[in-house]
Nucleic acid binder design. Structure first.
Length: 471
RNA sequence: GGCGGGGUAGCCAAGUGGUAAGGCAGGGCUCUGCAAAAGCCUCAUGCGUCGGUUCAAUUCCGACCCUCGCCUCCA
């Protein structure tokens, strides 16, 4: 089955066909983090979504080149650097490190390329130069360089591809930044921001004077440098569609990409936002979570990943602690089933692929319908459990089931819960309890059970004897 | 005001012109010395409201109500 994705450009589902004539290589760009603080779980929803797109493409056999930028120079960062009295790189390094650690905790595959804005200044300057030469960008009286939407449109450029906006009636509002006041038109956006005293040591040379790049030009310069002037997929949060992505298109196509008869990006796919307890995250509401906050509460990355992957990427998702608890229970069922399947399969090699894997893949092909995909997974879990309870599952079937799960998991990225070996002390207590039970000294047996529980282990009495499980 | 999403069981969430996947919670059962854990079973005559089309609508059409997001900080 062919993959269908919702392209924001056409606002409709489109069959995914790579630009690569061989149909093999796929270029994927996703706007990464601005490293001025710890990323919150809302940010991570987008990155988990991007990871899902990448994993499913790889599952389908595509050779994906995944690029995610790091915005390490930007207004907020500069303000924080000034407050902290530190250097730009020193300040951003800590948050970048935290970001990638969190990304790994969520089992997101690491992008193949992670370009930093500060390392692509020459490319950005070159791109801005191209735009100035083509007459669609101008240096204003404040020393900054702006992109002129009016001139871009006069050259045949189409501005407003992603979002239908009433540009004629756009007016300067309170949100127009003071450093943008020299623009010819309020809709114009900064490509190069002239150095101001508050920037401190954060500036680079350019033909238009010292300064720093605007946010939008970063992604245009880095994506085209690493993926070519025309590539397959550009992902990001829905809020980035305008102005960020719209401006990226204008800059990239305005610099001449469209002359080749190519579009900058073939498929724009946007992920919806995450709400917490039904509301937008905010510190004042007390519903603002970083990944670390949740891990401090005892939740794991795979539980959070599971929860984020239960909803469709284009629907806003309501994140709740109750839901996270539910993910823990749900994953526990998968873990139990897998453990039993492993015990049954032993070293038996798998022979055939069970049919449910195709249904799972079809669900993902349908615009990444994760709810349907999980439905397939859990129906499978129940079937396996039922068959094992009735002793009708053969070792070969169990091996087939496990092989199929491993395939599915290359997309899900859930893995298996790490089984902690019980320490000798616990095993001894368990043995003592068994002895007490055998002697019908249930008082002592229950006492030992409580002691084990107090030490963080749970006894599971099965027909095949007791097992210890870490709580 | 412009543009775009949503309203499906207690909660989360798929889906379909022919009578509602899955997960969590709840209930029952099995196992057990008892529990726990685990497993199985069960759990919406109804899909925001009112009309219309149709043999048949939650699914199509119209109106309305509610809700969320974006409209140059924002994943």
């Amino acid at each position: 089955m062919a993959l269908q994705l919702f392209n924001t450009l056409s606002r409709s589902l489109e069959q995914f066909v790579p630009l690569d004539p061989a149909g093999k290589n796929v270029g994927l760009y996703c706007c990464g983090p601005t490293v001025y603080d710890l990323a919150h779980i809302g940010n991570f929803r987008t990155f988990v979504f991007a990871d899902l797109v990448r994993r499913h493409l790889e599952f389908k056999g595509y050779n994906v080149r995944h690029v995610m930028n790091v915005t390490d120079v930007e207004d907020k960062i500069i303000a924080r650097v000034r407050e902290a009295g530190t250097s730009l790189t020193q300040y951003t390094a800590q948050y970048e490190e935290a970001f990638f650690a969190d990304l790994q905790a969520l089992s997101c595959r690491k992008p193949h390329e992670i370009p930093h804005a500060t390392q692509f200044i020459p490319e950005m300057v070159a791109l801005i130069g191209k735009l100035v030469n083509r007459g669609v960008a101008y240096k204003a009286s404040d020393g900054s360089v702006y992109f002129s939407i009016e001139k871009y449109r006069a050259t045949g450029g189409r501005y407003g591809q992603l979002v239908k906006l009433d540009f004629e009636n756009m007016r300067a509002g309170e949100r127009v930044r003071s450093d943008d006041y020299a623009k010819e038109s309020v809709a114009d956006f900064a490509l190069w921001k002239a150095r101001v005293p508050e920037d401190g040591a954060v500036f680079w040379p350019s033909p238009w004077g010292e300064g720093r790049p605007g946010w939008h030009i970063e992604c245009s310069a880095m994506s085209m440098k690493l993926l070519g002037t025309s590539f397959d997929l550009h992902l990001g949060g829905e809020d980035l569609a305008f102005p960020h992505h719209e401006d990226e298109i204008a800059q990239s196509e305005g610099a001449g990409v469209q002359e080749c008869g190519h579009r900058f990006v073939k498929y724009w796919v946007h992920g919806a936002h995450l709400l917490v307890e039904g509301k937008k995250m905010s510190k004042s509401l007390g519903n603002f979570y970083t990944l670390r906050d949740l891990m401090t509460k005892g939740f794991t990355g795979r539980e959070i990943r599971h929860l984020m992957l239960t909803a469709h990427y284009r629907e806003s998702f309501n994140f709740t602690l109750e839901g996270l608890q539910g993910s823990r229970t749900a994953l526990g069922r998968i873990d139990e089933c897998l453990a039993k399947l492993r015990a049954l399969a032993g070293n038996t090699p798998s022979a055939t692929t069970p049919p449910w894997l195709a249904r799972f893949s079809d669900a993902l092909d349908d615009d990444l319908n994760m709810s349907a995909a999980w439905g397939v997974v859990f129906e499978w879990v129940r079937e396996q459990n039922r068959a094992m309870a009735e002793n009708t599952l053969t070792p070969v079937q169990a091996a087939d089931a496990l092989a199929a799960w491993n395939q599915a998991d290359t997309v899900l990225g859930i893995g298996t819960a790490a089984e902690t070996e019980a320490p000798a002390e616990m095993l001894q207590l368990l043995e003592d309890r068994q002895a007490a039970r055998k002697a019908k000294d249930f008082k002592r047996a229950d006492m030992l059970r409580d002691e084990i529980k107090a030490k963080g282990w749970l006894i599971e009495d099965t027909t095949k004897g007791p097992k210890l499980k870490k709580v």
